[in-house]
Simulated scan of single mutants.
Amino acid sequence: MKILLPVFYLPPISWFSVFLKDGAEIIFETFENYPKQTFRNRTEIYGANGRLSLIIPIKHTGKRVLHEIEMSPLDDFRKLHWKSIKTAYQCSPYFEYYEDQLEEIFTFKSNFLLEFNLNALKILQKVLKTERACSLNTEYIKNPSEVSYREKFSAKQESEFEMEEYFQTFSVKYGFLKDLSILDLICNKGPEALTYLKSVQPK
């Protein structure tokens, strides 16, 4: 089965469950018109005060195609995001184990959102000890032949995926927060993250 996936920033758990679906051939959507307020430039982690959105600032150049979108040089989001992630997960069971690898995400030098996200995905796959071959599309097709997930994951609505609760650092305080960034699963479940992802199912 061919699946057309949007390219997200430190994607939610549900995205990864589709990405690693058995037998799937993954094609990344890189020619879509860049939609605002989506996971393409934001991720959600579990902070000390609950759900926390980390947003990559975008350079406003008038360009609209995803692979042309540049990140704003005015705001050093890399340092800010890494600091927020460290603060959120430094007491989690596995953060220390993966810290050096995860920090590499934020030392990657590129001005382009797509390149930054794809490099982060490469590092996340190493952490998860998995390899999934994937390709980039070469044009935008309104009604693709692949199973399209371009509009499946919403940053504004509750996740459509079913997933079991697992321990989260601040869950005693605020309860279980569903479908956060894959970072939350990695830092809290460690080597069991891959097995967990295979259990995630759409409603």
Rank of each mutant, 00 (worst) to 15 (best):
H60P: 07
F95I: 06
A133K: 12
R40W: 01
F153I: 08
L118S: 01
L74H: 11
F31S: 11
G23I: 00
I123N: 02
S17K: 01
I13A: 02
F112E: 05
P6A: 04
F77W: 11
E32F: 01
R64E: 12
K109H: 09
L118E: 05
I69S: 05
Q101L: 12
S53K: 11
T138I: 12
N49F: 08
F31H: 12
L197Y: 07
S135G: 09
L66W: 05
L177H: 15
W82R: 03
R132N: 12
T30D: 07
S14P: 02
L185T: 10
L183E: 09
T87K: 12
H67G: 07
E25T: 08
E146M: 09
I85H: 02
K203Q: 14
A88N: 06
D75S: 13
L5T: 01
E32N: 01
P57K: 00
K203T: 14
K79D: 15
C91A: 14
E139N: 12
S92M: 06
P6Q: 01
T38D: 00
S92G: 07
S181T: 11
Q101H: 09
E70T: 02
E115I: 06
E32Q: 05
L10S: 02
F16G: 03
K63Q: 11
A120D: 02
S110E: 02
I105W: 00
E29M: 03
D179Y: 12
K189I: 09
G190C: 09
L121T: 08
Y94F: 12
K63L: 08
R64G: 08
L10T: 06
D75R: 13
Q101D: 12
F116W: 04
L54F: 00
Y34T: 02
K129N: 14
A88S: 10
N117L: 01
I45Q: 03
F167R: 15
S145P: 11
F77N: 02
L5F: 01
I27M: 01
I69K: 02
F153L: 06
C91V: 14
D75H: 13
N117S: 03
E162Q: 13
S159W: 09
K36Q: 06
T30A: 02
E99D: 06
T195W: 12
K109T: 08
Y9R: 03
I27A: 05
I69L: 06
R51E: 09
G23Y: 03
F31L: 04
K126R: 09
L180S: 09
P12L: 04
S145K: 15
E68K: 10
L183T: 07
K79E: 12
F161M: 12
S72P: 03
L54A: 03
L180D: 07
G23P: 00
T195F: 12
L136K: 10
L180Y: 11
K178C: 13
I13L: 00
K126N: 11
P144E: 07
L128N: 03
F170S: 11
L185W: 10
T195C: 14
G23D: 05
S84K: 05
Q37T: 02
S199R: 15
L10E: 03
H81M: 04
E160P: 13
I55N: 07
E160F: 15
S181Q: 10
I45M: 04
Y149P: 06
R51D: 04
L197R: 07
L124N: 00
L124I: 02
H60Y: 08
S154Y: 10
H81P: 05
K156L: 13
L177P: 13
D22M: 04
Q168N: 10
K126F: 05
W15F: 06
K83C: 11
Y97R: 07
